[in-house]
Structure formats: C-alpha cells, structure tokens
Design a protein around this nucleic acid. Structure first.
Lengths: 194, 194
DNA sequence: CTTAAGTGAATAAGGCTTCATTCATTATGG
DNA sequence: CCATAATGAATGAAGCCTTATTCACTTAAG
C-alpha cells in the first residue's frame, strides 16, 4: 500500500477511541486499549495527542464539525420556520441514530465532568441552541409560532426533548431507529400536550 | 458530646461526598478528600461503605428517596391531570434547584457511565417516567390532553424539557431560581410552540 | 474488662507518560 | 547509480505517581 497519508493514524486512533470509550467508559478505558485497537503502539498516541483527555476533546470536535457542516448546508435551502424545525429534528435524530457508539459518547460519556461541559461541549451546544432560537424567532415573525415565548427558552425546551429521546434510545437496547421518532417529536413540540 | 447516634457519620460522609464530587467530579475526588471534609479517617469510610462507588450509589439513593417521598405525598392530594402536571414541574424544578451541589451530581456526575446509568439511575428514572406517563393517560381520559399521543413518549418529552432546564441552570452560574421557570415550562408543555 | 468504633500509615495495583532505540524512507555526494 | 548519511515516525518497556483499600493499633463506651 502507498505511504500512509497524514492523519491516517490520527483518524484510526479516534475511531478506536470511540469504540473503546463507548464500551467501557472514559475512565475505564486505558490508553493501551485504544492503542491496541488502533493498531499502533502506546507511545504513538502521544505523537498525535498531548494526553488522554485530548483524545476525548478531539473526538467531540470531529463529531460536531461533521454535524454542523451537514446541518448548515441543508438548512439554508429551507424557507419556513416550521419546515426548518422539522428538518432540524430529522437531522438531529438521524445523525445521533447513525452511530450507536458515538451516541453513547455524546449522550453519556461527554457529560461526565462539569469542567469538560463548561469548556467544550456546552459552548458547542450553545451555538446549536442559538440556531434553534433563531428558527423560533423567525417562526414568531412569520406568525407561525406564539409570540409570548422566549426564543431562548423555547430553544432549550426543543433541545431537551430531542436530547431525551436520544438518551432513551441509547440506553434501551432495542433495535428501533431513532429517526422514526422525528414526526412524533415535531408534533409534540408544535402542539404540546393538548 | 454523647456517643454519635447511628448514622451520624454515615450522613456526614454522604454530605461531604456531595460537596467534593460536585466540585471536582467523581474521578478527581479521592476517598481521602471525602474523609477529610467529613472529619473522619480514611479507614472510617470503609466501615460505612463497601467501596468508593457505593458512596455514589448511596448518595443517589438518598436523594431519590427524599424526592419520591415528598412527591408521592403531595401528589395524592391533587385531582386533575393538568394540575398534577403543574405540581410535578414545580416539585422537580424546586427540588433540583434547592441544592446546587446535589444538582451538579444529578445533572452531570451521575451520567458519566452507561454502566451506572443502567444499573441505578435509569431504573429510578424509569419509575419517575412511569408516574409521568400515568398523569398523561389520566389527562387523556379526562379529555384534557390529546388522545393521539403515546403516554410513554409524552412522559419522556416532559422529562426532557425539565431536565434540560435543570442542566442549563446548573451550568450557568447566574443566581436565578430554577423554580421560576416552572410556569413557562408548564405553558410550553401544554401548548407547544404555536 | 470487653467489645465495638475509629484511626491513618502502609500497601499494592494500575495506568499515564516518557524516552532510548529501531527502521523504513528520503536526501546527498561522488 | 550506488553508498552513505540524515530523518523522524513508530515502538514498547519501564518509571513514577496516584489512590483505593487494608489492618495492626488506639480510643472510649458500657
């Protein structure tokens, strides 16, 4: 085979880390386990990452970058707020539902430390919440959504429902597809309980 | 002082653990730190708990027992489903909002391991979700809630919104009171976005 | 005096990280 | 073209530190 292109091992290490951390949890996973699955020596990890924690950060960054890249592109093509919201729900649930190992990490492992939540995951979540709040505000201007609703509050509520569905799906081992819940979620968010 | 009544040090250790684990996270907190804050020797911990993990379990059990005890008593006195839901929201937000350190643990630390989630926290959450689903079903029979709604699904959605509000409150260091969000949450859950 | 509770120094295990060494690949020079 | 040097990615054994847990000993109650 040709010479390994730059980043080949970097990716291999991250892929291995997703699997191992999903199975055992971050603190039960040793650097040696990740190295073994990635097919590299223990020391090689430190050519690509400063320390063990940085693996987790990079994991999350890679996942979020993919998420945002796809989200932005697809969202621009849609006009109405109701349709935008529906598409975000579809996207959120189908992206989380795509890779169970990665989902375990985003729904469970990444929440293990308030320090981490502060510094990384929550700032990214904040960006996401801002997008959601924008869609709510747009819907209010269109007259599609109630005006007596704080967009920032509504954004959190919407996120909360999707996030709980995702966590529920991760923890129940049933073989349902997460994105199948999208219509139900959309209906609930639009109409409420009554 | 008189001989410590049984459970005195047990409680002291749990109280200390809440504070330390909230500050540093479970894995950064050593048994020695907990012992020091509790004012006992390291070895004393092992007279009351089998191992470090058991401290975390007991912490959670104690918190949930208090939650459920208060919830059941107060809920029985209420008739209508809409009022019941409103009271659950009040109760959930005000209990979580009562003790920030404990909230950090329930909203962040307890979610660090899928193994733990499976064995403990999620079974308790499942009981809670069952109560919520019951209220939704009752509301449907009363004609107060839409009939085309899976109560189990709706329960998760309701929980998701409250949980996200709680997490948001924990991570934002503002001095707002969490229970102030209760009316907004109730309105959103009943009416949705439009 | 007996017994249970409490102590905290010692232990042992585990794992992150380092670094001297290897080796395939590339550059240099004659 | 070949021989030699240089490079730096990769290795993996082991150092070093952290920390959960134990246990021989002390304290104090009844």
């Amino acid at each position: 085979m040709a010479r390994n292109s730059t980043g080949m091992k970097y990716e291999a290490i991250l892929d291995a880390a997703v699997v191992e951390i999903a199975r055992r949890g971050y603190y039960q996973t040793t650097v040696a386990m990740i190295a073994k699955r990635a097919g590299v020596a223990d020391g090689t990890i430190y050519l690509y990452f400063g320390n063990k924690e940085e693996i987790l950060f990079s994991l999350f960054d890679r996942a979020m970058d993919r998420f945002i890249a796809r989200g932005k592109a697809e969202l621009e093509a849609i006009g109405g707020a109701v349709e935008k919201l529906g598409h975000i729900i579809d996207l959120h649930l189908s992206l989380v539902g795509q890779d169970r190992d990665l989902a375990i990490i985003t729904q469970v492992e990444l929440r293990h430390s308030i320090h981490f939540m502060d510094q990384f995951s929550r700032t990214k979540v904040a960006e996401y919440l801002a997008v959601l709040a924008g869609v709510v505000a747009q819907g209010q201007q269109e007259g599609a959504f109630r005006a007596d609703l704080d967009p920032s509050f509504a954004a959190k509520a919407v996120f909360g429902v999707m996030d709980e569905m995702a966590t529920d799906w991760v923890l129940s081992r049933r073989n349902t597809r997460l994105e199948n819940r999208a219509p139900e979620v959309a209906a609930f968010l639009l109409n409420g309980l009554r």
